[in-house]
Amino acid sequence: MISIRRKTLNDIVWDVVIYVLLTVLSLIMVIPFIYVIVASFARESLIQTTSMDLFWKIFAPVGNHPNGFTLAAYKEVFDMDGIGIQVLRSLAVSVCVTVFGTCVNLFCSTTMAYGLSRSSLIGKTVIMRMVLFTMVFGGGMIPTFLVVKSLGMYDSYAALILPGAISAYNMLIIRNFFMELPAGLEEAASIDGCTDIGIFVKIALPLSLPMLATFGLMYGVGHWNSYFDALLYLDDSSKYPFQLVLRNVVNQTGADIDNLDELPPSDTLKMAVIVIGTVPILCVYPFLQKHFAAGVMTGAIKG
């Protein structure tokens, strides 16, 4: 629509430069993933002797094998006598924590945001001040730990969900969104005899579906990716979520100074675990991308 004018040579050069630059850049962004995926299927000996050249060497014969591909790492990851149980259990834990946690997040954030969206509400200012203050000033790691502990949540999944039930920043953006809903709708509904809760559930929420999808995604990704809460609050290693298991597998050096013969997990095994931890996010991502494109932009600008 803009190109009323014909492209000059300058513009064409400019276009080529930008296309090439961005293509290369976006490839750099994904090459590490591709490398990890390829490496997870490679033979261990190949990984130890190749770097970049793995990409083509994997097709070449290795020793007396026709090529470098093997499923050994995945067999080991899902080996029920080995770490298989731990991996599957932690995946299940992560899925549950992500689903439950996101529900709690959305529930608490939207209810509070809606409550705060009424400007005439008595006490609103106090609550807003509290929220803003705690955004910039907190008790810190140990005092929060002591509170969580004294609530009896240490070593329970509640500690992974409740202490982070609301992100103040997200909640304020949701509130902004609710405040911009047309007031007429609410009035009409209240004349129809709806309570505030009714209006919230029947009108406000359905109108903000894309935004909820966005924040659901944000919270969900946050839960799936988090390991630090689990490190802080979980004691029993059989309760660990996937990211913490992943961290332990990757960190495992096997270097007990008293027992130098202990072997660390192979690199392919580490790669396979990384792939398993990343794939779910990458699968969900394209479906939600169109939502957050719209949702985040509206929210982010105002925030």
């Binding site: 529930f107 609530l151 500690a159 359905p206």
Partner: peptide, 28 residues
């Protein structure tokens, strides 16, 4: 819309459930 009703109900139930879980799951 129906979906969201369900989700909010589920979330409410969950929030309650998780809280009780937290208290009973306390290991001393």
């Amino acid at each position: 819309m129906k979906l969201f009703k369900r989700i909010t109900t589920a979330a409410l139930a969950l929030a309650l459930g998780v809280t009780t879980l937290g208290i009973s799951g306390c290991s001393e």
